[in-house]
């Protein structure tokens, strides 16, 4: 199979890779680039464990071909903490014990960050709706929802 050359930006870093045309972005992130923070839960776009952003839009990396990433800005969990500083969402998830086994956590955090970037003042319903594509089998979601709402409030205060 003839491999294709793809040039993209991942977490702000210009990145190039070679891949077969049928490889998913998830496969390339994990197995070619070693960015294993993005997880595979179902492989069918139904669980959200592989959530990443592409040009600021939240997508499931398992539902996108890697070749489609050419020229795009990809954001993964590895880019969420900046300069050794945790993102406020990460900090709040730790404080509020909003994670257990941790395998859904990167996807949840990426989705929550995308949500707050679009809507810095979401209602609880909007948070629940925004995270509906991220399955968690451990926590029951309550602490996750509270952590996102609390973070949003703190981030709004910090801006003021």
């Amino acid at each position: 199979m003839s491999k294709m050359h793809v040039t993209t930006t991942i977490n702000g870093e210009p990145t190039e890779f070679l891949c077969d045309p049928d490889r998913s972005l998830l496969d390339v992130l994990r197995n070619t680039l070693g960015l294993t923070g993005t997880k595979e839960g179902c492989g069918t776009g139904d669980c959200g464990a592989c959530s990443v952003t592409v040009d600021g839009r939240l997508v499931c990396a398992c539902l996108m071909l890697a070749v489609e990433a050419g020229g795009c800005e990809i954001g993964t969990i590895e880019g969420m903490a900046q300069g050794g500083e945790l993102h406020p969402l990460q900090q709040k998830f730790l404080e509020m014990a909003a994670l257990q086994c941790g395998i859904c956590t990167p996807g949840v955090l990426v989705a929550a960050k995308a949500l707050l970037e679009k809507n810095p003042d979401p209602t609880e319903t909007e948070v629940r709706f925004g995270l509906a594509g991220n399955l968690c089998r451990c926590t029951g979601y309550d602490k996750i929802v509270r952590a996102v709402l609390d973070t949003a409030a703190e981030m709004r205060e910090a801006v003021q």
């Binding site: 923070g37 993964t76 969990i77 969420m80 730790l94 941790g102 990167p106």
Partner: peptide, 14 residues
């Protein structure tokens, strides 16, 4: 917190 909480939140837990 959970022993791996920080690593879970950063995606570093293997």
């Amino acid at each position: 917190r959970h022993d791996s909480a920080l690593k879970h939140a950063t995606g570093e837990a293997r």
